[in-house]
Design a protein around this nucleic acid. Sequence first.
DNA 1: TTGCAGTACTTAGCCTTGCTAACTAATATC
DNA 2: GATATTAGTTAGCAAGGCTAAGTACTGCAA
Lengths: 148, 148
Amino acid sequence: MRTNARGPVQPRERELADRLHSAAIHLLRRARRSDPLTGATPAQLSALSVLMSGPKTLGDLAAAEQVRAPTISRLAAEMERIGLIRRRVDPGDRRVARVEMTAKGRRVLGKGRELRIADIEGRVRRLDRPEADALERAVGIIEGMLRD
Amino acid sequence: MRTNARGPVQPRERELADRLHSAAIHLLRRARRSDPLTGATPAQLSALSVLMSGPKTLGDLAAAEQVRAPTISRLAAEMERIGLIRRRVDPGDRRVARVEMTAKGRRVLGKGRELRIADIEGRVRRLDRPEADALERAVGIIEGMLRD
DNA sequence: TTGCAGTACTTAGCCTTGCTAACTAATATC
DNA sequence: GATATTAGTTAGCAAGGCTAAGTACTGCAA
């Protein structure tokens, strides 16, 4: 493979995609470190954030989280056990389980978001003005990239 | 909580942190979809990408991946076993283990990246020139934010 | 109406990848 | 030379992915 001082030769778009991917991974790894302080696990917090918009069937939840049914089934069982969600059998189709957040779930989600965002916010605050402007613009661009 | 048309009222840095966090989550969810096709595990691919820039001690690797020593120790053992990396004891300090990619590691990384990055790269390619410039600058800023 | 296929979820059991605690080996320091 | 520190390993736990196989229910067609 050809290389130069900056690493392997590759199209600019690929290198940029690569760095963006890597930055996202490391950003989230940091942010997740505060999750244990909420008493909930990352997967539980993520599921709660999906339930923010209202009750969901376990199937809907699995789709939103992009995981298989057994993963959600186990996650929901534990979340119910510790009181983050409550479940009801759908009266119209008794195969279906609907779950929704409890007040405790809402509190835990709020705290988890607070902590995660706080870590990133602390880093953002250390940027100077032009850097923050550039970041803000780029976040808008990324949001646009993901909208399709 | 007070709100306006853009959501809850909050300092600019917090809003930016929130959007960045959310963008990172959604970006990675997309990229992860192709993971099962790569052949190597996500942690292995990530470690290989760190080794792209040259040999590293296990400690360096752990720091780069933001994980603890035992996690890297086990990962490296498995990667060595399947021939993705090779290790040498540092002659100057015999506590230190240096690892580097093998040719096989380079091949696997190439293929894995291909799959993981393809989605993001496709989106990056749809940006116009100023957008790509802005994104590139911001990725550098995020990398800096995470370096502390 | 019965029986069979499909759907929604659960159970069992595996794997990867985080972690801490406790260890070994090598090096540095007093 | 004794002791502390550093780099990495080992053992063992937990979370959260997965597949395969099972249960309970629904719906449809003979």
